[in-house]
């Protein structure tokens, strides 16, 4: 029993984070500039707007065995492209239901708004999210290694 627990603790999840170029990516930068420390489990993919994120990307990530996915963007009303984050919100609500029906735990996926001045909040968010994914343990889907391929078209 005891052993199992410590195994769980040493588990380092792999987490994918989408950041929009204008707010949350800047918030992540500010966390750095201010040296707010957070767990090194996340890998950020930069997109121009949270409205770019397609649900299929998240499914793809889980299919590859990634343990958690976090989508971040500007606060509602602050989107650089006016309403991109509103579309993201709608899509991700739908996606949540789908993930549930696929048996993927709710806590593995989150949508959160971070402004360019919220460096601290970004660090806190990552710490909190990493913790909650850690608590869930490894994703049930075995990890797959990727290939470097060229687009065929």
């Amino acid at each position: 029993m005891v052993k199992k627990k410590s195994q769980k603790e040493s588990f380092e999840p792999q987490i994918l984070v989408f950041c929009c170029n204008w707010c949350s990516y800047a918030g992540a930068d500010l966390a750095g500039v201010s040296r707010f420390q957070y767990p090194p489990n996340i890998r950020i993919v930069r997109v121009m707007c949270s409205g770019r994120v397609e649900p299929i990307f998240i499914l793809n990530a889980f299919k590859n065995g990634i343990d958690g996915v976090l989508i971040t963007g500007c606060h509602i009303g602050d989107c650089h492209y006016i309403s991109g984050n509103e579309y993201a919100q709608v899509r991700m609500e739908h996606l949540k239901k789908l993930l549930k029906s696929l048996g993927i735990e709710e806590d593995r996926f989150r949508l959160h708004w971070i402004s360019a001045s919220e460096g601290k909040q970004f660090a806190e968010l990552i710490t909190d999210f990493t913790d909650s994914v850690k608590r869930l343990g490894e994703s049930k889907i075995p990890k797959k290694l990727g290939l470097i391929e060229l687009e065929s078209c």
Binding site: L16, V47, M48, R52, F57, N60, A61, I66, E151
Partner: peptide, 30 residues
């Protein structure tokens, strides 16, 4: 912004420089 690319139900729109394939590759290689 690429919102249209995410909205299209048939995948008929893509965003240059942030294409479906390019982002998929990033995720695959994580």
């Amino acid at each position: 912004c690429g919102a249209c690319a995410a909205e299209c139900p048939l995948g008929a729109i893509d965003q240059k420089h942030f294409s479906k394939f390019q982002i998929k590759k990033q995720i695959d290689l994580l």
